[in-house]
Design a protein around this nucleic acid. Structure first.
Lengths: 131, 131
DNA sequence: GATCAATTACGAAATGAATCGTACGAATTA
DNA sequence: TAATTCGTACGATTCATTTCGTAATTGATC
């Protein structure tokens, strides 16, 4: 129950907080969010959103002067994991193979990326037996 | 513009149509959808949904007696491709490597699946130069 | 043609997400 | 103390999605 998956807008906020890796105030998040936005959001929009996220357990608040600072409740990896699991289950019926097939056909990874990906799979294969 | 990505409910309907691979009427889709559903939907719910999908261009209609039969406008692969591209871009900032890393950490593919995945990558590597 | 059952058309309500304005409170300053 | 500034709380509005009821239509049957 404590593993809510964020909505689109919520996820944007989480990305900012993960990137800076330091608890931030609403205003700071707002400014980063707006600095390269075509249509800037209002302060209260983000305030409300971050409130909801705190209620849901996606963010934690800590008092700082008259304001709060917010931090993500869960590390980035854990959340990405959930979101990917969602796609994997919903879209690819749980088949990692099907997903990779689409991915290759799709993302056209560069030779360099391919190399990295191969390495990942090698490493995983080796560490597999201790599962 | 003709590459709409389906919503959750729309996708469920597409899956049914892809699986049977034959154009179906609303009632048939409804029955499959409801047969293992905890809360069954009303006929009109699916009717409306499929109408919207036809408007959007996700489905095509062909008359059959007094009713219509519906078929997906696009093949499954094409749609999955779009949906995966969305996840890749939004969640993993376009990094196929990052996605695969999560996937391995996540789906715990079996040795057999791994083998298939490796093969996919091999094949892709070979065909890559003609890009 | 009249009637019946199945289907579609239309429109409206319920829900969830995203947006923002106004009210109000606390610290800061004039 | 009054005015300013920064913050949160709360509620309203908009928008997309999902849901479904009622009315109109159509084809089949008598």
């Amino acid at each position: 129950m404590s593993d809510e998956t964020p909505t689109k807008a919520e996820f944007e906020i989480l990305k900012i907080l993960w990137d800076t890796s330091v608890p931030m105030r609403v205003r700071e998040v707002l400014e980063i969010l707006n600095q390269d936005a075509e249509t800037p959001r209002a302060y209260t929009t983000i305030m409300t959103l971050m409130n909801i996220m705190a209620d849901k357990g996606l963010l934690q608040r800590e008092p700082d002067g008259k304001a709060f600072r917010y931090r993500p409740s869960r590390p980035r990896e854990r959340t990405l994991k959930n979101m990917l699991a969602d796609t994997l289950g919903r879209v690819f019926d749980g088949s990692a193979t099907a997903l990779v097939a689409q991915l290759l056909d799709n993302a056209k990874p560069s030779p360099d990326e391919l190399k990295q990906i191969r390495k990942l799979i090698e490493d995983y294969s080796k560490s597999d037996r201790k599962r």
